[in-house]
Design a protein around this nucleic acid. Structure first.
Lengths: 208, 208
DNA sequence: GATACTAACTAATAGCTATTAGCAATGCTA
DNA sequence: TAGCATTGCTAATAGCTATTAGTTAGTATC
């Protein structure tokens, strides 16, 4: 009795990607079993091979879907000349995206710790653009961390992502769920404040 | 031909702990196999059971050894009343310890992502003390992040540790090995500068 | 109405997992 | 010298892993 598409829900490949994304993000590539993915979708594991060539291809698809979702709004920002206000906008968008799709940060962290297939793609598409000087820049003044510039980029990035990846450990210690919507606002404010301190007393963050 | 203690090296249990610590830190609890641990020590995996009850006990021993190494120098600092200079000392010591023994940060990150046995011990012994008000405090002025205090503690911690756990991803992007000795100095300076900005223009970091 | 395609299934594989049982060699102690 | 605890080994277990082969039931097309 196959092909019982429930008609109510998403197509199977998408449901597989959803389940695999959550599991890869939680457990990493090696510790995720296709049986668990299949269980979550509600099918048997060999049926996964009707939609993805093998485990690595499934992982690659998960990574690709996440990367395109993240790089799209940032590519747009990269077109305009780089101003201090542009940096603030970029930061806020990044923070909010990581809160809405926390799985990329988790996947990245697993890849950094253990290595995974396609780690190059993650680095090249997400990180490398931040380290190359933009084509038309206004050379923002970086304040007291002048010669530490690349390290500051790494630091800000890590700060945003480690908030996501470490959140479960702090749930009891903060009075609040660190991944709830209130916390998102709080983290945006903290990051913006920090950035303002680091970049100098320049422009204040834009108010929505 | 057993009991061939090479006489040159450390006792076996310690060598097992060393190997297991590296592997657990790199791959996490679930993805680490006892066979790989044994290979690295140079024995067969059943021989591990002569020294540790099972995989979980081995992991517990790794965690415990790391925690005692880390909490010792910090407990000492916690005795004295809390001053701004004390916070700077605490920060610098923490950064340097994480550079010398990067495995605790990696283990913590795996535990936060996937959950592992004994995660409570990690949180209780390492994090919880930072969130409880010290017995005799001088109520340091936290500057522009006043009501964000617990979030700032979490942020500084994450900043220090994510530097370690994310380092491999940035190796190509920075011009330098992020875990080399020069980088340690650079990170200490960055963190101290940041802390100075956050805590207000208070005391400058002590020069050794 | 016959045919091809899709997407599910079961059965089976080779290899790895932690763990146990039993054996053998060594070194310490009486 | 006899005995014992330590610590290594091999062999064997039950269970999980990704992956393949072959089958079957629906769906769309001619």
């Amino acid at each position: 009795m196959p092909a019982a598409a429930p008609a109510t829900s998403k197509p199977t490949p998408e449901r597989i990607l959803d389940a695999a994304e959550d599991l890869f993000a939680e457990r990493g590539y090696a510790a995720t079993s296709l049986g668990d993915v299949a269980d979550r979708v509600g099918i048997r594991s060999p049926s996964l091979y009707n939609h993805f060539r093998n485990k690595e291809a499934l992982y690659a698809a998960v990574v690709d879907r996440l990367l395109t979702a993240f790089t799209a709004p940032l590519d747009e920002l990269r077109q305009a000349p780089l101003t201090a206000e542009g940096i603030y906008r970029w930061l806020e968008i990044t923070v909010r995206m990581h809160h809405q799709r926390p799985n990329l940060a988790r996947l990245l962290q697993h890849a950094a710790l253990s290595g995974s297939p396609h780690t190059d793609a993650l680095v090249d598409r997400l990180f490398r653009p931040m380290f190359e000087p933009p084509q038309n820049s206004v050379a923002p003044n970086l304040g007291p961390v002048a010669e530490l510039q690349p390290w500051a980029v790494m630091g800000l990035n890590n700060l945003v992502m480690s908030y996501i990846t470490m959140a479960p450990m702090y749930r009891d210690l903060l009075g609040e769920d660190p991944l709830g919507p209130d916390a998102e606002e709080k983290q945006v404010r903290l990051i913006m404040t920090l950035a303002q301190l680091v970049l100098g007393t320049g422009e204040p963050p834009a108010q929505d």
